[in-house]
């Protein structure tokens, strides 16, 4: 496993010490499964359930959604009994909210604009945002990384692989 030091006092595995209260990761994992299970089961009940002979579109999602909800509840209950050793031992720092936001924003920006702006401009912004997420990467360096990567990607995908992706999109009158 990684040997980088974890931030002191922020051990992801526990909430408020060794024995007081539920294991937070287990509780959250269980709750996530319950949420997904219910969402699929309820969403699935909009569709025809059908019969065992001709199962409708809702049959399998409802059954699996129910199963996932059950498993999620089992995990929630278990979380009150102690910490899952595999999680508690994990060496984790705090959640990097800002950097995560930059990365997700970079990818979403690409999805929204690649059609309109075209590959070149869209990628330039995406790589710039992504590069900013690096530790100690200042805007100047991020811009250099962005320009280099954009040139490289255009070379690989547009020139070498001949993908039919316009370099400049309609929004820019290309």
């Amino acid at each position: 496993m990684s040997t980088s030091p974890a931030a002191p006092g922020d051990h992801a595995g526990r909430l408020g010490g060794e024995r007081s209260g539920p294991s937070l990761p287990d509780l959250m994992a269980g709750a996530t499964f319950v949420a997904f299970g219910l969402a699929f089961a309820i969403g699935g009940s909009q569709y025809d359930v059908g019969t065992a002979l001709r199962m409708g579109s809702g049959y399998v999602p409802i059954a699996l959604g129910g199963l996932l909800t059950f498993l999620g509840l089992v995990i929630v209950v278990a979380s009150f009994r102690g910490v899952d050793p595999t999680v508690a031992n994990a060496d984790r720092g705090p959640i990097p909210w800002q950097r995560m936001g930059l990365l997700v924003g970079a990818i979403m920006f690409f999805g929204f604009t690649v059609g309109g702006l075209g590959l070149g401009p869209s990628l330039l912004v995406t790589t710039f945002l992504a590069a900013l997420a690096g530790h100690g990467t200042r805007p100047g360096r991020a811009a250099v990384i962005a320009i280099g990567l954009t040139a490289l990607c255009l070379g690989v995908f547009v020139f070498a692989l001949q993908l039919r992706l316009p370099i400049l999109g309609d929004w820019l009158g290309g």
Binding site: L103, A106, I107, F110, G111, V114, L123, T126, T127, A130, A131, A133, G134, I145, A146, L149, T150, L152, C153
Partner: peptide, 8 residues
């Protein structure tokens, strides 16, 4: 960032 770009 390269991974992000290529993957996108």
């Amino acid at each position: 960032p390269a991974i992000i770009a290529f993957a996108s």
